[in-house]
Amino acid sequence: MLEFLAKLFWRDRDRRGSKEVAKERLRLVLVHDRTSTTPQLLEALKEELIKVIREYIEIDEESLEVSFNNIENSVALVANIQVLRVKKDLA
């Protein structure tokens, strides 16, 4: 009985909103489809970005995130970069 209840509860929690997973996965894959880009392109772009930014600002390269986001009907390139320090000699 307990097992049954646990199963029921677990199943409910486990399965709530498999559609949410579907939507999330679709959003990501469609951004790449729509812009005809591959994850490799983003990776290359990210590396170039780091190279350029590094000349002016000290950033946390590990936490740098670059992704495409859907904003209404258009696609935005979003970069989330944590700044550690602005280089003094340039300021």
């Binding site: 399965r15 709530r16 909103g17 498999s18 559609k19 949410e20 579907a22 939507k23 959003r27």
Partner: peptide, 18 residues
């Protein structure tokens, strides 16, 4: 399936496909 959250609803699909 929509009711229990296991299938995309009309709004979900319109939203994604615009």
């Amino acid at each position: 399936m929509v009711k229990r959250g296991d299938m995309m609803d009309i709004e979900d699909m319109i939203d994604i496909l615009s």
